[in-house]
Design a binder for these strands. Structure first.
Lengths: 274, 274
DNA sequence: TCAAAAGTGTTATCCCTACACCCATGC
DNA sequence: GCATGGGTGTAGGGATAACACTTTTGA
């Protein structure tokens, strides 16, 4: 790469055509929790993590699924602006929890041109959007996440289609828990989006333990059981009731509202304590 | 912003001059720990966190200090490659711990043109580099970090010059610990680098508690006292000896080497356990 | 002799896990 | 009546904080 002794020299080249073009995009992993009615009238509806994917209409990756995303408008937007714009387009929601995840810059990420992409996660309360999502978008439940010998398999399902992909993780260095992810198998997702999805889910899983981030996925009122289920879905493990209640106690306040209708003792509704 | 119905339409515009140009850079916060001899022959040398800054030779921000950085070579590099190249240039070190921090995209970040910059932190063992750093670069000790009423003041010192700046942090949302940082005062640092420096130090502070990241800043052999001092410098607080030793015990292995020469009981040298 | 740091042992406390148990509901 | 989830109490164990104490050195 050419070295420049000063800015003037650089700007000269910059304004000529010596530099190839670069574009940036944002990709957004929109995460929500959905519930699935059970047959047994006593059982509460089963909770699942779900993410929003968009079907591509054109080449490259025609007819494959990808994360909602869009090109950065160089003249007027920040990356955050861009992500918010995409989010508004796809879900018609503003005021959503949005967090920058990672910037991916693999040279062959997009076969058309040089693209660097900054990914985001967005957390959404599914009840807030009606069926307001854009026509080519669809919610996929995260049906399964398993890890065995550093091979992670993820299965998504939108009740019409099943997407399965697997990612191998290898430790980058022994001093931290940072991994290099590589796609082992994937036939329905475009670009390197399997990795973005995994990275996003892992980030959420981590943050759940030391922040109140889950409340961005809850409505205003909820039972402690529901809240616990959301934690369990994200952490991918069962929690003990008494422990959970003690930990969560000072983050929520009890209301006098009661939720009845399940074939069991009714429960009080709580809300997030500001 | 113009909307495109398909890729073809987009590519047409892309290849014309409708899109303004975008460049990316990486900025690297190189962190190390330095020691300062004490007058008292008994006392161990005082440890400080220190970071590498570069003096700008040209406009804009002529004669101000900034983080080492460089433009992404669009045709051949990933961002990681770019960061490693910059690091090699400045310190002549390869094989350094390097971690992506955050991608900044403020529109007015650089007054010359539209630049999006991905920042990195690099952890370095200062003993490994001789005085091998590039001529316009200098190590600054982080002399003071104080926080009061969400105003953070940082003082840097390279024994010739003192740099003081302050940053206000405001909570982004009540559910997490994410803050929006804005520069309150700064007269010697270019661009938005005060924020990058703070973000990097905070990241390091966090990771220290749940990873072995500090060992990237240590030589092969060290005493437990030295190791503890590095922790204390990063965490900015005193730790209790017995507690520290118990926690660290299974991460290190004792060697039969002994360090003498201080006016006190000599100590065994340890090394990081793989 | 003494100040400084190296290094170890002990107790009290907190937090979390695990389990046991009772309550209220709809069919 | 009974399965199911709501909700609470308590004993045990592991980790940590705090403190006290001994050891070893160079000037």
């Amino acid at each position: 790469m050419k070295e420049y002794k000063n800015e003037k020299e650089f700007l000269n080249d910059y304004n000529s055509d010596l530099f190839e073009k670069l574009s940036m995009t944002t990709d957004i992993l929109i995460i929500s929790v959905s519930s699935k009615k059970q047959n047994n009238y006593r059982k509460t509806s089963k909770k699942m993590m779900s993410i929003l994917l968009v079907k591509r209409k054109d080449y490259p990756f025609k007819n494959m699924w990808c994360l909602p995303g869009g090109f950065l408008d160089v003249s007027s937007e920040t990356l955050d602006d861009c992500a918010r714009r995409v989010l508004k387009n796809e879900t018609n929601l503003s005021n959503v929890y949005l967090e920058q995840l990672y910037t991916f810059s693999d040279i062959n990420r997009d076969p058309r041109m040089r693209i660097v992409s900054t990914s985001y996660i967005a957390l959404v309360d599914k009840n807030k959007l009606g069926d307001n999502i854009s026509s080519n978008a669809s919610w996929f439940d995260v049906v399964k996440i398993t890890e065995k010998d550093n091979l992670i398999e993820i299965v998504l399902n939108n009740s019409e289609e099943v997407i399965t992909f697997s990612i191998k993780k290898t430790l980058k260095e022994k001093t931290t828990d940072r991994y290099k992810f590589s796609i082992e198998s994937n036939d329905k997702l475009a670009f390197d989006h399997p990795i973005v999805i995994l990275a996003g889910i892992e980030r959420l899983k981590n943050k759940v333990n030391y922040t109140d981030i889950v409340f961005n996925m809850m409505g205003e009122y909820f039972t402690l059981g529901e809240l616990q289920q959301v934690y369990e879905v994200i952490l991918n493990k069962k929690l003990l009731d008494p422990a959970f209640r003690r930990i969560i106690a000072d983050k929520v306040s009890k209301t006098d509202k009661i939720k009845t209708g399940g074939g069991h003792r009714p429960s009080y509704l709580y809300r997030y304590k500001k």
